[in-house]
Design a protein around this nucleic acid. Structure first.
Lengths: 218, 218
DNA sequence: GTCTATAAACAGATAGAC
DNA sequence: GTCTATCTGTTTATAGAC
């Protein structure tokens, strides 16, 4: 937690470099397929430094998980939904979250390694990441459910509400996970800003449609 | 392509056992994390048989991909949408496909190894699977797009239509990929028939809502 | 803290007996 | 076709010099 103005002590610098490299390589190829050699090379550090700073490959993975959790709670802990009281405010907040999700997970170049690592941990969770789900993810999901309830009139903790929020998340993360078939079928060579905007439009339209339909039911 | 009534010759039996075991283990842990020793043990076969029958680990993966492609084209090649001419027929066909998707990918116990392998290949495609995307997946996606267009009045190959179909697929596959956070947040211990039914209801409701909204736009 | 050198375990592949 | 035994390369982890 040093201010970034002061240059890092040498040890902390390699530690940070290893962490960033690990996030990248783990996210790129998966934990098992990633080798500590490759991570060390990407960080321009020595392989032995992984054991010194993190205790081993598994410890490095845990440190990545902690880092991701910290970043996420930093983003969603402070900036999310400051004061939402009416249905239309809730709807606007949900749309803003969906937009931020598409930008951050699908499009944003800087957040890409973090998102990739996160999505790998979602489908193959490490023991360390189970904690993150409980402390970081579940409360966030519950907050989105409250917004959904406010926007539609449904119960915030009903099965339908919780699953509807998952279905919203699904549409965002899919376009990162299923990159290959999407690129092929869309005739795209990458998912850049223009492609992300097209995805965003569909996700937002689906969100609106689902909210309207749920509102009519409730 | 032997009838299953006649017992398999010895060689074909171990070949089939290795294929089934590989599908399971690759789907469970991913290609890189899976070891040929473990696959051979699960198939009660000798490790050397992998090289004999498939040429190596990579060949085994390709054989799994071919097998999955054959099963999929068997399912979707014959059973899909025999004669659809009106918007309401198209809507019913889309709902039936979504239902079949949830059942097959999320719920069905027998199809689970196949679905798991398929979803791993979607996020980390092997060279062998690129062919499957083009020959098997893209035409199927295009057929669903035509149904979507018929149900809504939109253009079948417009960007919005193609992305909308992806968003529909997203909601189905997400519940398999993001199993861990879903179970945690829903308080479920598994995704059995009851849970799959709840998911199916949400996916179908979202499909209806999206079709209605798209129909109003077009 | 950082490095070199090496240990110990494991991977996939293969030669050759049967 | 199936097996045992082994080769070769790579992995993570670590001991010890600096």
């Amino acid at each position: 937690m040093k201010p970034s103005s002061a240059p890092l002590p040498r040890g902390d610098a390699t530690r940070a470099a290893l962490l960033a490299a690990a996030l990248q390589v783990f996210g790129d190829k998966g934990f098992e397929a990633a080798s500590t050699r490759q991570i060390a090379a990407a960080a321009r550090a020595n392989i032995a430094m992984i054991a010194y700073h993190f205790g081993g490959k598994e410890g490095l993975r845990a440190a990545c998980a902690d880092h991701v959790a910290a970043v996420l709670s930093g983003i969603f802990g402070t900036a999310a939904a400051p004061r939402v009281e009416t249905a239309s405010q809730a709807r606007a907040a949900l749309k803003a979250l969906a937009r931020a999700g598409v930008r951050g997970i699908v499009a944003d170049e800087a957040a890409r390694p973090l998102a990739r690592f996160l999505l790998r941990e979602i489908s193959d969770p490490s023991p360390a990441f189970a904690r993150v789900f409980e402390t970081g993810f579940a409360p966030l999901h519950a907050r989105v459910c409250r917004l959904w309830a406010l926007a539609t009139g449904e119960e915030p903790e009903s099965e339908a509400t919780r699953l509807s929020v998952f279905a919203l998340i699904a549409q965002i993360v899919y376009f990162r996970i299923a990159r290959a078939p999407v690129l092929l079928r869309m005739g795209w060579s990458e998912i850049g800003p223009n492609q992300a905007a097209a995805i965003e439009a569909i996700v937002l339209a689906n969100l609106e449609a689902a909210l309207d339909a749920a509102g009519r039911r409730a």
